[in-house]
Nucleic acid binder design. Structure first.
Lengths: 376, 376
DNA sequence: CCAAATAATTCAACCAATAAACAAATCCAC
DNA sequence: GTGGATTTGTTTATTGGTTGAATTATTTGG
């Protein structure tokens, strides 16, 4: 298979882009190979020559993204290989604000959590400035701990339960009572964050990214997060799909019973009224079949082979499975050909925060050349 | 903005990939610029140097993909520019089989229809072999006409109302009564098609691609085609989204009334029962609100800003608009922030056939280097 | 008729990957 | 143990593709 450069991008490509791509390719290859591959092994799996791989690896080692480790146990004749593993810098700061807690963590390049702070407190009475200042405090502690470990931070990302525009503006976060909050600007007020690039995204989107990291396998799935509301993160071909304005995944307001219960959004019969946290506590079987109807819609529309249930759904997954499955079997046209797989989320309550840090790490892994340039 | 090579592709990139990308970039730039740009103008808009553009243009002219035309009317001092326009080779064969007709057309590189043949006849009694042989006959006439015009064909694509796998196998086409039909193999039986690459895809998917060409603007929209069943083609960021197994877009089986009418798929309350061709003839307002409920689900889930109604919906669009719009305003969470736009399809009954030819043309435009090599 | 301006081409330099030769470090066989 | 086989990693010349500057070509305007 020939390498295709993304045709849609209307920017010219030069030799440096080739190097950027191949740097990412080598980095990914090492990251996805747990048994300390040698330069030669990387060359074999990527299709690049050993000479090229050596040159690329030199750059990555110089930037701390890769590290040489002692040779693997003897394996036969020949000069012994020197193994490669992912380095730990740069790391990233993952932040989360939700109705009843604030959280911050630092995740290193390998995906390991190196710092973790959670502060339980009802955020609804606080105004956005207060809440984000408090979060800045947590972030400062996490950063200090990370830097004591010798980690350099590449950036920070914040998970918010609401609609977020591309430049990080929180349009609405109904359960926090926020409207049009410039979260990056407020966060930059904290000295510990002033010098970092700051991204903001929807909580379910980022949780989906976190899940993608740990599932490893399937690059296409829907992550559904049952909270007070219901959010969803859609991962298509290994990429988070955010929608044109970044407002995708509002599965909580899919109509399941057109003339049913009135929802706080003004419409009738929204999924949220039948499978939100309150409704779930009230009647699990109703929640399961409502979820099944909505998920069938997603599968019919997008041919998504895997659905991951997180948030409040994860602990009761086994009791929901049958009810959801029944609706899926009945309502998905292709259920007979290849049924969609249903499974509980692997990450717990930390999913969004870890996914946030992961989004930054992903950026570095996907474009190491950019990081090498920035890090000088 | 720096050019990003698609990181996901796990193939190495070499200098020839750079050239392939830049050839496509130049070709697109000329295609999207109606007023005969010069090499210098192309260089300015792409960011490549004039030297590079000249070299690339030479290759494209040699392959017939671009043509030089007389200079544009005087514009000031200086050596007059020689204009560039898209050539007409290669062209592509678009084929369609549907319940009550067969159709074939030839579309040239610019998107112009150069040949068109339609044969009305009920295809349900015919077995797949007979039907595709008849279609092969139409294709032969279209090809002969095109070649008399000096056109070279790059390939053929067939639109089918059913589920199609990646390698062109028709798994099910309920309204034709087909099951597991190897359409490419049967088509290759026709001498006029034996030497062409043949693609097969779902009718709504291809119609959506056809629509993408003519709308020009929005690269993200949902195309909904009302036929006996209801199909949808989803275009995200200028690319058709086919789903993991190629079975996306089954919007006809979204549940709108969970305890409603029994559908031939076995489930209850499918959209098809309320907004399929029969139901539409029966009660337009019911069809509109059912459609509205289903489309609201799509917008909530995917944040799609534009919905195009085609097939049987196009002629009655004005009478459906209000009913659909009411549901969308009520049921889409972000309707207040930025309502989705609703519009009728620009192409008529030919949409799928033209979209099929267009899919081939798109392939050439997106990777002209491959075509130059093949035609070489 | 010459200067200014714009278009397109030519040519040396550069960058990144390749292929092939080479050096290093081990195993294995005698 | 000593020499050949084997595998890793580096070095070097070559190739393909873009760049930038200089050059040539062709027009308008004074």
């Amino acid at each position: 298979m020939r390498a295709r450069l993304s045709t849609r991008s209307s920017a010219p490509v030069r030799q440096s882009s080739v190097r950027a791509h191949n740097l990412a390719l080598v980095l990914h290859t090492v990251a996805n190979n747990a048994d300390r591959p040698s330069r030669a092994a990387v060359a074999a799996t990527t299709g690049l020559t050993r000479a090229t791989v050596s040159a690329l690896v030199d750059d990555l080692i110089a930037g701390g993204l890769l590290t040489e480790v002692g040779p693997a146990p003897r394996t036969g004749a020949g000069r012994p290989a020197v193994g490669l593993v992912l380095g730990d810098t740069p790391a990233a700061l993952g932040l989360e604000i939700n109705v009843d807690y604030l959280a911050a963590c630092v995740v290193d390049l390998t995906g390991a959590v190196r710092q973790r702070f959670v502060e339980r407190a009802d955020q609804r009475p606080a105004d956005p400035g207060q809440a984000l200042t408090a979060l800045g405090g947590l972030a400062a502690r996490a950063r200090a701990g990370a830097e004591a470990d010798g980690l350099i931070l590449a950036g920070a990302a914040l998970a918010v339960p609401g609609l977020v525009t591309e430049d990080g503006l929180v349009r609405v976060a109904p359960n926090l009572g926020w409207q049009d909050v410039d979260a990056p600007a407020l966060l930059r007020g904290a000295p510990a964050l002033a010098d970092l690039p700051i991204a903001v995204d929807n909580e379910a989107n980022l949780a989906a990214l976190g899940e993608l990291r740990v599932t490893g396998g399937d690059p296409t799935f829907l992550y559904v997060s049952g909270e007070v509301g219901i959010g969803a993160g859609l991962v298509l071909g290994g990429e988070l799909y955010r929608g044109v304005r970044g407002w995708s995944g509002e599965i909580g307001h899919l109509t399941v019973f057109p003339d049913g219960r009135l929802c706080r959004c003004g419409a009738r019969g929204c999924l949220e009224q039948y499978a939100g946290q309150e409704a779930l506590a009230d009647d699990e079987q109703l929640a399961a079949s409502a979820l099944g109807i909505a998920l069938a819609a997603v599968v019919n529309l997008l041919d998504v082979p895997v659905i991951v249930l997180g948030g409040a759904y994860a602990p009761v997954f086994e009791r929901l499975r049958d009810g959801i499955g029944t609706e899926l079997r009945q309502r998905v046209l292709t259920a007979g050909l290849a049924p969609a797989e249903l499974r509980p989320a692997a990450l717990g309550a930390d999913a969004a925060m870890r996914g946030a840090a992961d989004a930054i790490i992903r950026g570095v892994r996907d474009d190491p050349a950019d990081w090498l340039r920035r890090a000088g």
